[in-house]
């Protein structure tokens, strides 16, 4: 007796599972989708360089939160000497007021679910 048929069936199941991402994206048809961020502000610069903000904005926000909540330290000195209020709602969302077309774009794409919005309101949505 040989178990060849059973082993081949097992191998096929493995191949289907391991190539699942390919079928998933073929069926979804969104493989070429890229998040397209909309900038709705006239301001020329952010509180930190774009490269840093792209990858590390969560660090900055985390620092701000701790410093404001624990030390009442509300003034942020930016990399080029400008002063900003350490506030997600008043500073960040002032320029990036379009959460749905800015924050959510990448967060959805990367399946990130930040808990900022558990407490913070989005001014546009309140009005």
């Amino acid at each position: 007796m040989q178990d060849k048929s059973k082993i081949v069936i097992g191998l096929l199941i493995f191949l289907v599972i391991i190539t699942f991402p390919i079928w998933y994206n073929l069926a979804g048809g969104k493989a070429t989708y890229r998040p397209d961020l909309k900038y709705v502000t006239d301001a020329k610069e952010c509180v930190a360089p774009t490269d840093y903000m792209t990858s590390n904005h969560m660090d900055l926000l985390n620092e701000w939160r701790d410093e404001v909540v624990r030390d009442k330290d509300r003034v942020y000195m930016s990399f080029n000497g400008n002063k900003y209020d350490k506030s997600l709602t008043n500073t960040c969302l002032d320029c990036h007021s379009n959460k749905a077309d800015f924050c959510d774009k990448c967060h959805d794409y990367m399946s990130v679910d930040p808990y900022c919005w558990d407490c913070h309101i989005i001014p546009e949505e309140v009005h």
Binding site: P21, I22, N25, T32, Y33, D51, S55, N56, C106, Y109
Partner: peptide
């Protein structure tokens, strides 16, 4: 930390 959106673009390019 790195720009993970760029990494996903690479990943999606590879898989498609």
């Amino acid at each position: 930390k790195t720009d993970i959106v760029a990494i996903k673009e690479l990943g999606m390019g590879l898989i498609s």
